[in-house]
Amino acid sequence: MVSLEDLKKEAKQILKENKVKYIIGYKKSTNGLMPVPAFIKEPEEVEKLVWDPTCVFNLTRYLVDEKRRKTKEKEPDERPVGLVVKGCDSRAINILLQEKFINREDVYLLGVSCENTGVLDEKKLTKKIKGEKVKKVEFDEKDNFIITTQEGKTKIPAKEILANRCLECKANFPVIYDVLLGEKAKRSIDNPFESIEKIESLSTEERWTFWKKQLDKCIRCYACRSVCPMCYCDECVADTISFAVTADTTAEEKAQKIKWVEKSPVSSENFIYHMVRAIHLAGRCIDCGECERACPLDIPLRFLNRKLEKEAKELFGFEAGFDPDQPSLISCFKDEDPEDFIR
């Protein structure tokens, strides 16, 4: 069991010792169901910290902002940022390390294990408890969550409210950390790619209909990109007129930008946008599910990334986020890589 008290103790300790400049963790939301990020600078503030299966956010995304901020500072504070990381979040850290976006000494990782469960899906939970305020979420160690609301306690089978990704997660404990809270309990999952295989088993036209219906909904709000810890590029190739254009950018320079994707949220552009994103995340996505969670239109974005995760595993024996020293999926090859699709 991860004890919140232990977490607070560790957090307090490193703040007291000035080991970190601040800690990013979770705190209760004032109005929402799920906790929100907490930025804690003072040892006294650690009391705000919470940890339970409602802590869904992948906080590694905040390292992107942190880095942007730091590069602008004249005399940056070189101390690491303390960060609470779950299994999936820790794999994101490994990718950021692999891509040299951060250095190991930039972060102090408070690893928390999901210990046989995972985190909850807000939408699923809301449906179950019908708008009541959640006071406490516990796991009964048997496959049920005990949810305490004003109305009392309800027992809900884990399967029914766990986030989709957690249902398919087989490494639900941190793979990189400075302190580890909880057990490294490995979970056995029969088929982590079950949902993907379901789509694969459809006919080409059925798959097309499925995706057309889903992606036509996209309004190109880019929420998926904004929450993704891997979408840290200063300028996204799918939308080249974003960050790197400044007041000094000349018309000529603008003409030098390629428009792979048009801005308008029409079907063809939505497809290209999401495919570009998926292909750029191949071998990098660690399935934290943030894109899907953030999508206001409930587009099952995870499927696109999961599909390539599955192919990377099956075709190339590649798994993302377990080894920060391995070369990335597309910057290496094996002589025996399959080529049965090539004439």
Partner: peptide, 9 residues
């Protein structure tokens, strides 16, 4: 190639 197939091309 796999992705194109997956989205139904």
């Amino acid at each position: 190639n796999k992705l194109l197939d997956f989205i139904g091309l």
